[in-house]
Design a protein around this nucleic acid. Structure first.
Lengths: 344, 344
DNA sequence: GGTTAGCACTCGTTGACGATGAGTGCTAAC
DNA sequence: GTTAGCACTCATCGTCAACGAGTGCTAACC
């Protein structure tokens, strides 16, 4: 039905479009290198492909994009064997191995209730974030250029992640680095690991170790693992979209990015010393730029009077304060009661 | 610090702005009724409040909006006692009472993995959606105008919800309705309840019962309860925002609304008869308008060869098909294995 | 006959400009 | 102290012209 060249060009267009999300022109296909024809030739083929229904033009003077039929053809003729790379497979396996823990479930569940009732985004910081620290770090070489990084936490949880070893780093150097990390970072709370890595370890390493930058970025990846996110529970993030002040997608994305950074969240949600009830931070009272026109209402929950974590609601400054405060009040008490009951 | 009138006007402005998200003008405050002054007077006070820093003007010819200081004052002087209405309290209590069930957790967890690995939105339909049906429906009057609707499902789960009884409906009529529902809807799968309500019950009721419309909307609310959503697991909905084709917030909202309608999702995710592997539905191949430029890739998982539910990925038509298919392949098998193992 | 260079043409994007209207500030009357 | 009236401001919206990316077509080339 299609000539080899047409198939090749169609594939190139779909690939490019999947990457860039912009209509692709004849010139850019020609420049890719894997299709050895001039733009004019490609234009001719593209015109044919369009006539056959595989491509579309958003308007006359734009490049082409694949039509549904084009995608269909692409999918039906996918040659690559859908195989995942080892790192991805490993990631998936370790995800599955994660223990489901009751307290975690309960907190996540609470986050869900909270966002559902308020129609705002809810944030819960579980106790782990505050109290879990690093017990041990290990780096096991797999091949020449890959190793598995293993992190054991003070709660006995084991996280691992495959990383690439920078070219030219010797085994003895790797050992040195691991020793250094264990010396400096053991007992450091997980959420502070990355900061410490740069402040304390960085300096030391720069002195003794070659390939400093590559190694640092490897360690960054190794430590950027799940434990960093562990213990932060979000729910109802999409409620944000219903607020007219967030009709600008970029603003929303900024906020979402903030929500994925545990240390920043910690800082925002940390209860003011001595403060025990509900706190309301309005607009720029929040220290972070991205949420300078948001309000954050937080409370703490506890077991036996000992503060365990925070529970908060993020919405526009134009927020239904009375309602949210009421709900948060009830819910933080309920959660406290529930947890106390559970751990008795 | 502020006169009573100023406080009153400030409160009115904050309230209005919280509701409308638009700068409020002097005229609209004057019209509210609870502030008995003309627009001009209010303008004067507003000018003062702005000078004091409680209000802001986005631009000269617009109304005022509260400044952070204004919100702060509003919050610090909130008089209402943060009390929730009984229906809300009940809702919260019943949320908390929900049993956490292992299989549910596992499926939700899988949804999380899936969206995290693909960077698209993942949808899982749990087995309940397909197989759970109504066992019993009950309506218990609480006061004059409120009742609690109780739904017992075939899995033994009990859901309840407080609804308002329409004025002028007698107890005996309510009983008739409940009997009718039990006669007609028992053993109907939960996700079909609402459709059946309108097609089968509606007609019958219209003949025998007064206040038909009010009653229907009450029943609609009663049945629109959680069970309808039960068994649909979403994750990574926010990934959508990172795709340039969804920079229009309204489009995204449309999709989110679709995702919250179980019956529609069911229809989209239902495996084609006889089909067992991975299905790819591109663009308009999906029957729903809102996702006409999305692709939906689905697979099924099963126990003992018996299909239990579906697992899918929703993204733009411009999707990394090869990668997603690969991941979905592995994950649907893993989930099948895991569930089989668990229930052995 | 297939391939490529060159050129006129199309059409979406961008920025400038004027009309419109909501809401203000101020003055004068009540 | 309160209110009516009026000139004024400024964001929004639609129109219009300049710009440029990318095409389709023709003619030359291998």
């Amino acid at each position: 039905m299609l000539t080899d060249r047409q198939r090749m060009i169609l594939n190139a267009i779909v690939d490019d479009y999947i990457r860039s999300a912009e209509p692709v022109g004849s010139r850019s296909i020609s420049k890719r290198g894997d299709v050895g024809y001039s733009p004019a030739t490609i234009r001719n083929e593209m015109a044919d492909l369009e006539e056959l229904g595989f491509l579309e033009q958003p308007h006359t003077s734009a490049g082409r994009i694949p039509s549904h039929k084009g995608y269909r053809y692409y999918v039906d003729h996918l040659t690559s064997s859908f195989s995942l790379n080892p790192a991805e497979l490993h990631m998936m396996k370790s995800f599955f191995a994660e223990k489901l823990n009751v307290m975690e479930q309960m907190i996540q569940h609470t986050a869900g209730i909270l966002s559902q009732m308020t129609n705002y985004t809810s944030i819960l910081l579980g106790p782990e974030v505050f109290h879990t620290s690093l017990r041990h770090f290990q780096l096991l070489p797999l091949h020449e250029d890959q190793a598995v990084a293993i992190i054991v936490t003070s709660t006995g949880q084991v996280e691992n992640k495959i990383v690439s070893i920078p070219q030219g780093v010797s085994v003895s150097e790797l050992e040195q680095v691991v020793n250094l990390l264990n010396k400096k970072l053991v007992n450091v709370p997980l959420y502070k690991l990355k900061t410490r890595l740069y402040t304390e370890i960085g300096e030391e390493m720069q002195r003794h170790i070659s390939h400093y930058e590559d190694l640092m970025s490897m360690l960054d990846i190794a430590l950027n693992n799940e434990p960093d996110h562990r213990g932060v529970y979000l729910s109802g993030t999409t409620h944000m979209l219903n607020q007219p002040e967030f009709k600008d997608v970029d603003k929303v994305r900024e906020i979402f990015e903030l929500l994925e950074q545990t240390p920043a969240l910690m800082k925002l949600m940390a209860p003011a010393p001595g403060e025990h009830g509900i706190q309301v931070k309005i607009g720029t009272e929040n220290t972070h730029e991205a949420i300078s026109n948001c309000s954050l209402i937080t409370a703490t929950y506890s077991i036996d009077g000992k503060a365990l974590g925070s529970i908060g609601i993020l919405g526009p400054t134009r927020m239904e304060y009375a309602r949210v405060i009421g709900i948060l009040n009830v819910l933080s008490h309920d959660l406290t009661k529930l947890l106390s009951h559970w751990y008795k």
